[in-house]
Write a protein that binds this DNA or RNA. Structure first.
Lengths: 344, 344
DNA sequence: CTGAAAGCGCTTACAG
DNA sequence: CTGAAAGCGCTTACAG
């Protein structure tokens, strides 16, 4: 097989740093420094090296580079789902930041915490981003012993970077909005609660609701609080249950938009109208929320992922300390909330 | 810092293969063979090595292993979105298979085909899975020149493995269903068409519709075919347009469930009822389709990802030839389709 | 500013 | 069945 020139090398068995060094008339050490933009390389030499590298279509061998330097340029991301709105958005934010920083994203989808035992990312990542925690036991010691910076979303763990949102405040806003419209009989559909896990999301959102009711002098009716299991289907079940209460609630605060979609479905299916007969507020600002015309508490999921990635990247590259940031939420008022039916 | 025994090594600066060899009283070459389950190692030696490795909590250094062997145990996945149903499901399928095979999944989210130019996965993956193609020009030569097996979803490219579905047949089924219910004035909302790209999805789904109408002896009305831009919002726009036609169509075949959700929203918002006034069929069987009670053509997105991963893994590990598989679709009849209003 | 050389931690023919 | 040794392709003190 003859080649007609170096112009279009048909996968010419990847040039090595030695090839580049030879072509540029320098040592491989100099090539390494020049290509990585290190100081102490004359500009003329650097230019020559870059030219040679370009001509040879050279790319550094990641494994050789990692082996020699100990840097992997890779961040492991552990997520329970890739298909749910919040996680998908967070991953988008993470990916954008890592990509920009020339880090690779190794994805581990882990619903039940197996990854925390087998640690498949061991020795191949410079850092780990936890979009979730092991569900049974909050044992993150394996990840901690990896010896690399770790960041966690929505959970504040000693020694880890984290990004949180004000779940209490957000839920309180949602509840206050319903109160301001004149509602008194306000139900709540909760996320799954994890008693043994430091995920405070569900508890915090409940707390905001309780706090607002209390501030308004309204007694809490435990029959108006139902678990929606974090899913659309669970929201449907919870919605059915709440519609059967007598007297029926005039408004429902739902701790996630996906569950709220289930609730809305049930309301419509029961022949009721939202918001004329009953108001609904969600939490998330899911991308379909506007399609459902759903009033909701918006949280910046993508920004949370991006920020978490930045925190961990700072630790990896600058050796800085773990950082914790709490992001704001805000109420998005759409068409599923209105004053209660006048008959009540 | 003193250690109180080898039981709970607090990140003991990662044992190397030499440490294991010393402890087991063999050479590092034997350790390598024993741990990888290669033949030509006596079972007693293997047991000794495994014991030593366990005691030292040894894990092979991926970069050293890759450098020496040339194998990366990593597959690159390029996807335009992680948040859309089809891609999220496909990624789930891919991840499961790769995880099972002990391969890492490096994720590249790439909406506009940049990845095909910069090739960030160069020299670090054993194979590439394309859940998308560069949108401007169908130039996959960069990926091809990577010199590793490539698989593509929904596009059949020479030299690549691929997984396809019968889009023509599926759309034809959907249209036939509407015809069987008695509809004659059947509109269609199309996916974005990519004239220069070998993505046949949109064209094929249109073809199935046209074929069924033709077989039924119905003349195609170009005013009843509108582009929905592949999004919920696009579906809303397309829906509005179609509702303004006179006479109004009695049914709409929508080429994706997400667009169909937009169409359903518009129908409801126009004060019309589905399916009493107008029927709608989607395509996908999106996870929210049952919430919308949407009749649709189901395609196994997760299985497609899994199968594509298998195909490429076969090429990587067995050196087998690229494989192409076409998967079936089936009609899921729910509540958005019914006979046309009797007045018509 | 640059080079020579050690070293990163494995895998893999090659002998035996 | 096992060992000695070369080699994978870089990075990084260390000299100069």
């Amino acid at each position: 097989m003859t080649t007609t020139g170096a112009e279009t090398p048909r996968s010419p068995a990847n040039a090595s740093i030695e090839d580049v060094a030879r072509r540029a008339g320098v040592s491989s050490g100099t090539v390494s420094r020049a290509l990585r933009g290190l100081p102490n390389v004359s500009e003329t030499t650097r230019a020559r090296v870059i030219a040679a590298a370009t001509e040879l279509n050279y790319t550094v061998s990641p494994s050789a580079s990692s082996l020699a330097s100990g840097r992997m340029s890779t961040i492991g991301v552990i997520t329970p789902f890739v298909s749910r709105w919040f996680f998908a958005q967070a991953i988008n934010g993470v990916e954008e930041v890592l990509h920009e920083a020339n880090f690779d994203l190794v994805l581990y989808i882990d619903e039940d915490g197996k990854t925390f035992q087998s640690l498949p990312m061991r020795r191949k990542v410079d850092g780990v981003l936890l979009l979730t925690l092991p569900s049974d036991s909050p044992d993150v010691s394996g990840v901690r012993n990896l010896g690399v910076p770790v960041g966690s979303l929505h959970v504040d763990i000693e020694g880890f970077s984290s990004v949180l949102i004000d779940d209490v405040g957000g839920s309180s806003m949602a509840t206050d909005h319903l109160l301001a419209l004149g509602h008194r009989r306000i139900a709540m559909v909760t996320l799954d609660q994890h008693p043994s896990v430091p995920f405070r999301t569900g508890q915090d959102r409940s707390e905001g609701y309780l706090r607002s009711l209390k501030a308004a002098g309204i007694e809490v009716d435990p029959l108006l609080i139902v678990n929606g299991e974090s899913t659309v289907e669970g929201g449907m079940r919870a919605g059915s249950e709440l519609l059967s209460r007598a007297p029926r609630p005039t408004a429902i605060f739902v701790q996630s938009d996906e569950m709220a979609m289930g609730v809305l479905y049930i309301i419509r299916r029961a022949g009721l109208h939202c918001p004329e007969d009953i108001s609904v507020v969600g939490f998330d600002d899911h991308e379909l929320s506007n399609v459902f015309d759903l009033t909701t508490v918006a949280q910046p999921a993508r920004a949370q992922g991006a920020l978490l990635a930045h925190h961990v990247l700072d630790q990896v590259r600058l050796g800085s300390a773990p950082q914790t940031t709490t992001l704001k939420t805000h109420l998005v008022i759409r068409g599923t909330t209105a004053p209660p039916p006048s008959g009540i």
